[in-house]
């Protein structure tokens, strides 16, 4: 039951992780210090790895192979939140985006490990240790940039004001997802949001960053995208689409 609905929700999880990992890979070779080049690439590798696990489950549910789903699908059919398609911005923007996403993944995965769907629970259990490390890393960074210097505080505040409403979209359910919540496959997004806002709010406040007042997500539907997604996909899919699907790379 609910396979089609579950597939769509799993695809949304996969697309979020894929595009965040993709965006963060743009820092490789350009980070503020060598150690962070390496650390941020680790975060990106983990996100791409998590995307792979979700795309594999998506394939089990739909028969569609991960690389076809990733490289031969157009922007209109991507189900990611706009948060992850935005360009990388400055270091404050990328770090804060990763932090807000990590905090979300941590509360999400804490529920998904108890999902009534065994595969969902299994995948969540694989991802959770990595996400715990992510949150520790990005929390450390947010605190230091928030409290460190006037310039870093200014940039973090600007990034937070820009990102907040985009981040709220993480809690906007896909259509008909209530059935999955009722079946204890996915958690209730409103409960998730409350947990996330409590945790994130406390840490931001401790980092001298004011939680923005916005209450409405930037976009209501995961089918709505900015022009950045099309640009991103044009580049990402260029080599794969130089041959027909099925050619081995």
């Amino acid at each position: 039951m609910n396979d089609t609905l579950l597939a769509r929700n799993v695809l949304a999880l996969a697309d979020d992780s894929l595009l965040l990992g993709h965006r963060n890979s743009e820092w490789a070779g350009h980070a503020p210090i060598l150690e962070e080049d390496i650390a941020f690439a680790n975060l990106a590798l983990d996100e791409l790895g998590h995307a792979q696990l979700w795309y594999e489950l998506h394939q089990e549910l739909t028969g569609r192979e991960p690389d076809e789903t990733i490289f031969f699908r157009d922007a209109a059919d991507y189900l990611n939140v706009q948060l992850v398609e935005l360009p990388k911005g400055d270091w404050a923007f990328s770090m804060l985006r990763q932090y807000l996403f990590d905090a979300y993944e941590n509360v999400l995965l804490a529920h998904l490990v108890n999902s009534s769907n065994a595969r969902v629970a299994e995948i969540a259990a694989k991802q959770r240790p990595e996400e715990m490390y992510h949150l520790r890393h990005t929390s450390n960074w947010v605190k230091r940039l928030g409290l460190g210097a006037a310039e870093s505080h200014r940039r973090m505040t600007a990034a937070l004001n820009e990102l907040w409403a985009y981040a709220l979209q993480l809690f906007a359910p896909l259509e008909n997802a209530q059935a999955l919540t009722d079946a204890n496959i996915l958690p209730d997004p409103r409960a998730l949001q409350t947990e996330w806002e409590n945790q994130v709010g406390a840490h931001l406040t401790a980092s001298a960053l004011a939680v923005p007042a916005a209450r409405a997500p930037r976009a209501k539907s995961r089918s709505e995208h900015t022009a950045h997604l099309r640009e991103l996909l044009t580049e990402m899919q260029e080599v794969a689409r130089s041959e027909v699907y099925g050619v081995e790379w």
Binding site: G29, L34, A41, A51, D67, S242
Partner: peptide, 22 residues
């Protein structure tokens, strides 16, 4: 990195570039 033609190639190349930093 942003144009690797499969997800596997993307992971491999990022791991390699990261190693070079290391």
């Amino acid at each position: 990195l942003q144009r690797a033609p499969t997800l596997r190639r993307k992971l491999v190349l990022l791991a390699k570039v990261q190693d070079e930093g290391g």
